[in-house]
Design a protein around this nucleic acid. Structure first.
Length: 575
RNA sequence: CGGGGCGUAGCGCAGCUUGGUAGCGCGCCUGCUUUGGGAGCAGGAUGUCGCAGGUUCAAAUCCUGCCGCCCCGACCA
């Protein structure tokens, strides 16, 4: 393509509403424009990158035996009522009515539609397993869209759904997708890591997220430096500690102390001159309308997802003042496990504590020297807290490390969460009706592109890895008014095009500096510079964006060299 | 939904406190010079000052309401 004919508006100014680098660079490089909050247009350059990602996904999905379909984005209320998600999905589901007042939603995901499709046309075990995927625009009415294309409302997603006859077969389908995902992200040139994850509102029992490593990522993860354990921080397990022998002779007398207006762990700690580790924090949660007290050591944080999953609750939030008062008989800040009227669950962290401090369930009073087994009882201790730096790997006991990442893919084992309510059944060998076992597998396309930029940029702009680059090469004639220069550039351009190389000829009548700046900003992996002086010696210059290397090549060598570099970087194994 | 900020030329911003014919930089157009890292000179175009009311002789500026966008929090594939 000739630069002079492209719709490629680049910008020098950093847009004031873009926070993260990928967002800033995508706007400055003319890849995207915002239409309204969380909704973006892709310009030609941005769309080329999107299509590169899509193509890699298609190839790997097809290789894994999945088949491409295209499902509707507008979906009728009935299906969502059948799955129960019309009630449960919440405000993220954009709902509307047509002219006949019939209700619809914009698909935030497609479990219902695909399950409906399959249940109508798959009747026997002979037709299983099947894996169907699509690349489709999703709409989720995010509370707060941000970071450009990374967390937006309308976005492109590849979603695949597997249908199997039984668990064992579903396991194989899951593994195939897991492998395909590794291949996809490796081919995109990303540094990533699959981690164990919570399955959230999609549901199911087991899932992995594919995280692109980036300090700007919204997700935190932990991984073991010895074994292969890696998990989203939300999911990261904390190992059960050793139960220490507690000698009840060490128990001191329970004291009720006046603690006027002393509420937080910090306040209690300094008022009573005790360490936060010697306080048991009692948090009151509202779990589907029921109160529940969670006990945890004062210096640690509750992992709400663990609490939610342990209780099997649909909705979990910290109780409001009214609920706290009802549960404890006291205002916020004085809750404790003694004589509390609600269900109490306890984190491992308090299992071995003796003579600790808790609230007294009475305004302005705390207890000292509280002991489990004497002052109250706990049926069982469980893992309810957020993992922290000093914790050991729950699998092998090795040290764990923390990192941040961007979730670009998620694979779920759904089991029968959708096939059961939607009655996706088949007849097995014995003529028995069985429910299909499902899995679902998503990749955020735009997010993958943004994540790639987060990992590949420098002060001058984007540094595309070859497989995702919108164009592989840019030819920069330093001065288009010098006829031999533009002629040499045109020749190289024609030859590269004939070889199937994706190439831009910067034929604009601009100063060299302007062209260089734009080329760096856009991030072409390779740049061929045709200048008067070198040309007089029969040479042109090749600049590698990533390394900054500058190499002179004889004119006749440049095309084969570029072709070879591209071939090698698209298929590193062949090197 | 709670807290904060912003809305003035394509982009980035000043002007608003103290009302008086709307400005700067970049970009854009024309001409000349220049041509290896965002050129110089000269000339030029571009605005319902987010919208609607109100106060006033007069509103970008003061008042009221609304809308949009961004940030922090809550929430979340």
């Amino acid at each position: 393509m000739r630069y002079s004919e492209m719709f490629l508006p680049t910008g020098r100014e950093v847009p004031s509403d873009a926070e993260v680098v990928s967002h800033q660079l995508m706007i400055r490089a003319g890849m995207i424009r915002k239409l309204t909050s969380g909704i973006y247009s892709y310009l030609p350059l941005g769309y080329r990158v999107i299509r590169k990602v899509e193509q890699i996904i298609r190839e790997e999905m097809n290789k894994a035996g999945a088949q491409e379909v295209h499902l509707p984005m507008v979906q009728p209320v009935e299906l969502w009522q059948e799955s129960g998600r019309w009630e449960h999905y919440g405000k993220e589901l954009l709902r509307f009515r047509d002219r006949h007042e019939r209700e619809y939603c914009l698909g935030p995901t497609h479990e219902e539609v695909i399950t409906d499709l399959v249940r109508n046309d798959i009747k026997t075990y002979r037709q299983l397993p099947r894996n169907l995927y699509q690349i489709q625009t999703k709409f989720r009415d995010e509370v707060r869209p941000r970071f450009g294309v990374m967390r937006c409302r309308e976005f492109g997603m590849k979603d695949a759904y597997s249908f199997d006859a039984d668990e064992a077969s579903a396991e194989i389908s899951y593994e195939k997708m897991f492998t395909a995902y590794n291949n996809i992200f490796r081919r995109c040139g990303l540094k990533f890591r699959p981690v164990e994850a919570d399955s959230g509102s999609i549901g199911g029992k087991y899932s992995h997220e594919f995280m692109v490593m980036a300090d700007s990522g919204e997700d935190a993860m932990v991984f073991c430096d010895k074994c292969s354990y890696a998990a989203n921080l939300e999911k990261a397990e904390v190992a059960r500690p050793e139960k220490k022998k507690i000698n009840d002779k060490d128990w001191l007398t329970l004291e009720n102390v006046h603690t006027p207006n002393v509420r937080t762990i910090e306040e209690v700690s300094s008022f009573l001159k005790v360490k936060p580790q010697d306080i048991v924090k009692t948090l009151i949660f509202n779990a589907d309308g029921q109160s529940c007290a969670v006990l945890i050591r004062g210096d640690q944080e509750v992992n709400e997802i663990k609490v939610k999953n342990y209780l099997g609750a649909d909705e979990l939030e910290l109780a409001d003042d009214e609920m706290i008062k009802k549960a404890t008989g006291a205002p916020r800040g004085f809750a404790g496990a003694l004589n509390i009227k609600v269900k109490v669950i306890a984190d491992y962290s308090i299992m071995n504590m003796v003579n600790f401090v808790t609230g007294a369930n009475k305004e302005d009073y705390h207890y000292r020297n509280v002991n489990i087994g004497r002052d109250f009882n706990i049926e069982s201790f469980t893992d309810l807290r957020i993992a922290e730096q000093n914790d050991k790997c729950p699998r092998c006991g090795g040290n764990i490390q923390f990192a941040r990442g961007i979730e670009v893919g998620h694979v779920f084992k759904l089991g029968t969460k959708y096939s059961k309510p939607l009655k996706a059944v088949y007849l097995d060998k014995d003529g028995q009706e069985k429910t299909m076992v499902m899995g679902c597998y998503g990749i955020g396309i735009g997010r993958t592109v943004a994540a790639c930029i987060e990992q590949n940029y420098d002060v001058n702009g984007i540094v595309w890895p070859m497989p995702l680059a919108p164009y592989q090469v840019i030819i920069t004639p330093v001065n288009v008014n010098e006829s031999d220069v533009i002629k040499a550039a045109e020749n190289i351009y024609a030859e590269l095009q004939a070889s199937g190389i994706e190439v831009v000829l910067d034929d604009r009548d601009e100063r060299a500096g302007v062209k260089f700046k734009d080329a760096d900003l856009i991030g072409f992996p390779l740049r061929i510079i045709v200048g008067q002086k070198n040309l007089a010696l029969g040479k042109v210059e090749l600049k590698i964006r990533k390394s900054g290397e500058n190499i002179l090549y004889p004119l006749e060598k440049i095309v084969p060299t570029v072709k070879q570099i591209i071939a090698e970087s698209l298929n590193p194994a062949a090197k």
